[in-house]
Amino acid sequence: MSVTAFVIDDSAVVRKHLTETLQAGGIEVLGSAADPVFAWPKLAAKWPDVVVLDVEMPRMDGITFLRKIMAERPTPVVMCSTLTERGCETTMQALAAGAVGFVTKPKLGLREFLSDRSNGLVDAVRAAARANLRALPRSPAGAAAPAAGSAATPGTPAAARAPAAAVHGAMAETTDRVVAIGISTGGVQSIEVVLRQLDRTCPGMVIVQHMPSGFTASFATRLNSLLELEVLEAKDGDRVINGRVLIAPGGKHMQLKRSGAQYVVEVRDGPLINHHRPSVDVLFRSVAQCAGRNAIGVVMTGMGDDGARGLREMREAGAVTAAQDEASCVVFGMPAEAIRLGGARDVVALNGIAGWVRQVAQQPVTR
Rank of each mutant, 00 (worst) to 15 (best):
R161H: 14
G142Y: 08
R177T: 03
Q189D: 12
L198E: 12
R200W: 06
K235G: 05
S139D: 13
A170Y: 12
G149M: 05
E228S: 11
A170S: 03
N242F: 07
V125C: 13
L226G: 00
P146R: 09
G243C: 13
F215K: 09
P106D: 09
V193T: 09
L136R: 13
A172S: 03
L110M: 10
V194I: 14
G155Y: 08
E233I: 09
V103C: 15
G101R: 12
R161V: 15
R222I: 11
V103S: 14
D116G: 09
A180L: 00
P212T: 09
F113M: 02
A217Y: 06
I181T: 07
L229E: 06
G182L: 01
Q209R: 05
A127T: 08
R161T: 15
R177W: 00
L229D: 04
M171L: 03
F102D: 14
E112Y: 06
I183D: 05
H210W: 00
M205P: 02
L114Y: 07
S218E: 14
A220D: 11
E192K: 01
G186R: 06
S115C: 10
D176V: 01
L110I: 12
T216W: 09
L114P: 12
D123W: 05
P203I: 00
R138K: 15
R196K: 13
R138T: 15
V208H: 08
G155F: 11
H168G: 10
N132R: 09
N242H: 11
S139F: 08
N119L: 08
F219D: 05
P137V: 06
D123E: 15
A151S: 04
L195V: 11
T104S: 14
A99L: 05
M171I: 00
S139V: 09
A144V: 11
V208Y: 04
T216M: 04
F215N: 04
A124Q: 13
P157C: 02
I241D: 05
T104L: 15
R138Q: 14
T221I: 11
V240N: 08
V178L: 02
E192P: 01
I241L: 01
V206C: 02
D236M: 14
L195T: 12
